[in-house]
């Protein structure tokens, strides 16, 4: 499921990226690569989100979070 649907304080593992080519590389280079663990730290105004990724915090807009395909950790 997309990262944008993961609940607050929940964790998931990245399994793939969708969407336009440039955006995909951009996200991959930032560290959204298969097997990486992500955590939703905060939902902000307009449902944008702050995610924890390998010890750092990234502010992400919702449209990008839709493109990141994850598996929730509970299901692993």
């Amino acid at each position: 499921m997309p990262l944008s649907m993961l609940g607050l304080r929940n964790k998931g593992v990245v399994v793939g990226l969708r969407g336009k080519f440039d955006l995909k590389i951009f996200l991959a280079e930032l560290g959204f690569v298969s097997g990486k663990e992500v955590e939703i730290m905060q939902y902000t105004s307009g449902n944008n989100l702050i995610v924890g990724l390998g010890g750092c915090r990234l502010a992400l807009d919702r449209s990008l979070a839709h493109l990141i395909e994850i598996i929730p950790q509970k299901e692993l």
């Binding site: 955006l23 951009f26 750092c56 915090r57 990234l58 502010a59 992400l60 807009d61 449209s63 990008l64």
Partner: peptide
């Protein structure tokens, strides 16, 4: 363009 930015501590 969509928004991505690192949030420093």
């Amino acid at each position: 363009a969509p928004f991505v930015m690192e949030l420093p501590p």
